[in-house]
């Protein structure tokens, strides 16, 4: 088999996997944007915060250790235990729900009915605040996140080996694929399916869509906007956690994680700000697009490093020719 073609396919697959991560972050944006009209700049920081919380809990770190030590003159850093991954994830989910509640209670509850730009500014403030809190809580050093792969405490023995294997033989060629990416894709697919089922077939999901369509009308039939918005922020927090786990497991938990939010922006422009399938497919297109472009055109002809700007160029082209994105909410017009 043609070596070049096989290599292209490998790049394509790897791009697809990277796209899944973009899609996950974009998904968090879409959830909040649809339900409340807020463009949540803090989504990336939420992913960082979730990942740091997860690592902190796993490693038995004492939250706010530096602060406590500074005030009381003590020297505590660790509880000295390790929390099982599943328990740690569960605890982190609870923390993210609490965060959602606080964001609603202390920020957006007081900004109901304000201009979108004011809400947007509030999320920028939130992003920096959250970054500071994450730093204060868990410290700022780079941490390795071992969800399952090497700790071996959440998968049956023997499966870890499978997780670490990375080369597949097919058509007489060894494809290099990170197994973590495959797991990430499956998790993302399950997550999206779960969200769709929740939105379509449950009472709260229906209320969520109702709020997305028309706040005032939802309010008038007795839907509590406060509750729905806490729910949506919690879901976005959960999605951020999943994205944080995937990204953190790949390249460690560090502050650059919060910058994936910026990668989600072109994904949203491509897929449409209001569409869940749009976020997914947009993410995949950007992921594959930037990898293939780099491989086929960028590296040989343009001196490489095209991955940094390709997504934004693509988004720009879309903004000119199809501003609502590929799957942006159809504006219903009666004829």
């Amino acid at each position: 088999m043609n070596e070049q073609l096989a290599f292209t396919i490998e790049v394509f697959l790897n791009g697809l996997m990277a796209g899944v991560l973009y899609a996950l972050v974009a998904l968090g944006f879409v959830l909040i944007y649809k339900a409340s009209g807020i463009f949540n700049y803090a989504q990336g920081v939420m992913a960082l915060f979730a990942a740091m919380t997860l690592v902190g809990i796993q490693n038995g770190q004492v939250p706010f250790a530096h602060l406590i030590n500074a005030i009381f003159g003590t020297d505590v850093h660790k509880f000295g235990w390790h929390v099982h991954s599943f328990a740690a994830i569960l605890l982190t989910v609870i923390v993210m729900i609490a965060l959602a509640w606080m964001v609603q209670q202390f920020v957006f509850k007081h900004l109901v009915g304000q201009e979108p730009i004011i809400l947007f500014m509030a999320t920028i403030g939130l992003a920096y605040f959250l970054e500071g809190v994450a730093d204060l809580m868990w410290g700022s050093e780079l941490k390795a996140l071992n969800v399952c792969a090497s700790e071996g405490n959440c998968l049956p023995q023997g499966m870890n080996v499978w997780l670490e294997g990375t080369t597949y033989e097919a058509l007489g060629y060894g494809f290099f694929i990170d197994n973590l990416d495959i797991v990430a894709s499956i998790v993302a697919a399950v997550l999206v399916a779960g969200l769709v089922i929740f939105a379509q077939y449950t009472k709260q999901g229906r209320a969520m869509r109702a709020v997305a369509d028309d706040h005032q009308a939802a309010l008038s039939v007795g839907v509590s906007l406060n509750f729905i918005w806490v729910l949506v922020w919690s879901l976005a927090g959960f999605v951020a956690l999943v994205a944080g786990i995937m990204w953190g497991a790949k390249s460690g938990v560090q502050f650059s994680l919060s910058l994936i939010a910026l990668k989600a922006l072109p994904v949203l422009m491509l897929g449409g700000f209001t569409s869940i399938p749009g976020a997914i497919i947009g993410g995949l297109i950007i992921g594959v697009g930037e990898k293939l472009f780099e491989f086929l055109i960028g590296a040989p002809f343009l001196g490489g490093a095209t991955e940094n700007w390709f997504a934004y160029m693509l988004a720009l082209v879309f903004l000119v020719f199809r501003p609502q994105g590929l799957f942006g909410e159809k504006i219903i017009e009666r004829v």
Binding site: Q216, A217, V221
Partner: peptide, 18 residues
């Protein structure tokens, strides 16, 4: 002020939210 993207039946069911 109907919920435009919900079906008529979903609109009605949302009325029973409380």
């Amino acid at each position: 002020h109907c919920f435009e993207h919900l079906t008529i039946e979903e609109n009605l069911m949302t009325g029973a939210y409380t």
